[in-house]
Write a protein that binds this DNA or RNA. Structure first.
Lengths: 189, 189, 189, 189
DNA sequence: CATGAATGAGAGTTCATTCAT
DNA sequence: AATGAATGAACTCTCATTCAT
């Protein structure tokens, strides 16, 4: 159902997609759909939740690598961008439709987003502890946000960016600028 | 009307806002509203168009400063971030709702986005020509995208970022990382 | 609209009548119907309210007669039964569907019912004061309830009663039994 | 099942009660419920039928008492009111929901109602034959209807009546007025 | 025999849009 | 030129009923 919904939301957006379409695309009747959900909003929540779950799981498994120093950060970014690339539609839908979630669900989802940011921060902080980069806590947080968003923009600016680069180039170039940015940032500080 | 619509869209999103509400908030009757627009989508288009127009105008006027070298780029970024900060609601609405525009309007709006990217690119290219930074054309384009998005994320991640920084700090830190990123990028290339 | 709704409710009951049917029978579109009401329950409330209003108004105007003693009571009962007879469908619908009203509306309507009971009580109390009947306060209240219900049963048992009597006979017979009941009740007390 | 249904109907009415709820409250699965009934209307019919059956049975057993004259009538009324009081919910549901029965079932149920009226009539006619009251056939029938309805109103006006009286007082007062009404009715005739 | 997942017709309600005034 | 009553297509959601297991 989530797969079907993602597909429809990608094409027409959440609001322009009807529950009947979701049901049909999921392969069950409207009645059966409503056995699984209580309101249409629930579909959106399920979609968002499942995407976060998958992204996070895949990210977590990738973060357990045993490289050291700056390499570890590079690998993490590469992996994250890879995941985003493979789940483009899902990620795109999620960032375009979260705002339509009811308040409570929104908070829940934003918490997940916070968790993800923390994961990235942690990888950066690791480099700080290893003394391969020198950043204040504020700079670490900002860098984490930047990486996260640079991943997301691969989807929401794809109409432009993906004409210029493939994911490998994009990753390479972003890492390049990003790493120089933070390794030199110490000086500027 | 645009002001009223932006306000409503910020609060409830485009789809959850009714034409009646837009009319009322604009001080028109529903009948009069439909003298100015043909469909509800037109409102969204007008909103997006007017925001682009304003952002672009303000940006353009700021780019005619007479500083040289890297300072010019720093000033441009600072100005751009300033504009974004002052037009937070507008920018937020725009990036969250563009996707709801009908195809034709979408293309038109994306073109504006391309123009803006070009403006930023141009400022960066100027630095390249001045030989204060050394970037390939591909790196220039990516850098422009990054700046643009870092501006936007001030709004769409405000629930998190604006708790950590005020706009001055945010600008300072981003410029710091960004400038080191591109000035050192030559080496990494 | 109320007229149309009463007619439909008489035939099929409130729950089996659709809003579309109400709209059609009222001569407007479903959209226009919803300009006048907020929910389907509102229709029922409007129906009940308007019936009470009419019954009460007609009753009130009839109670201002200048006869004395027991005649006054007889006239009141006769008038009340007359009103019920003329508004049979309305009264029937009301007593069969009130329970479907949402809580708040129900209280409001029951208050009206209490008012009507009080009106009848007052006429009886007048006879008590005139010393043509001798009843305790409890007996007065019960007598009022009885009259009220004997009026209503002319509608809700019409499948049986109206085969046996016309409204004149019914009124005459009921008054007969009722008046003897209360004029002799003193003794039994 | 009937017990469960009565309980639910009392709380929410027939139409607002779902078959699922009936099944659950009865301890069946929805599938099993439909082994016993063909349509939801059948539930209502079963409920009504079983209530009539019980009221009638209890009434019948009480009518075989051996008192004579007016006492017999008083006892009958007292017993009937007693039954009503003990089966308040059932009686209330029945009178509020019969109208929702499909035509055929309705006729069947109304026949039962006729039977009950006849039973009461018979008790009154017995008094007429015993020459303790003097009533025409028309008066007998009306009196029977009145008693029946005065029983029912103990439930459907309980929000008001049961605040004023307990069942013993109510019975005593009603019998008082009723008996004087019919014993004196001869004169007024 | 009992179950409950599956169905889909149909309900109430909304709202973009029109057009007579 | 401005209005807002009127429209009805389209939406979300419910629930009586069935039937494969």
């Amino acid at each position: 159902m989530v797969k079907a919904a993602v597909h429809l939301f990608t094409e027409k957006g959440f609001h322009r997609t009807t529950t009947r379409e979701i049901a049909k695309a999921s392969g069950f009747s409207i009645g059966t759909l409503y056995e699984y959900i209580r309101t249409k909003d629930d579909v959106l929540f399920l979609v968002c939740d499942s995407i976060y779950e998958e992204v996070q799981t895949r990210l977590q498994s990738l973060l357990t690598d045993d490289t050291k120093g700056i390499e570890r950060l590079k690998n993490a970014i590469t992996s994250y961008f890879q995941v985003i690339d493979e789940m483009q539609d899902e990620v795109l839908v999620m960032y375009q439709e979260v705002k339509s979630l009811p308040k409570e669900a929104l908070s829940y989802v934003l918490e997940k987003e916070v968790e993800m940011t923390s994961m990235i921060e942690e990888v950066i902080r690791y480099c700080v502890r290893e003394e391969v980069v020198f950043l204040t806590e504020k700079q670490v947080k900002l860098a984490a946000h930047n990486i996260l968003v640079q991943g997301q923009m691969w989807t929401f600016r794809r109409w432009s960016i993906q004409k210029l680069y493939n994911i490998e180039d994009y990753t390479k170039l972003q890492i390049e600028q990003f790493i120089s940015g933070i390794t030199k940032a110490q000086v500027a500080d």
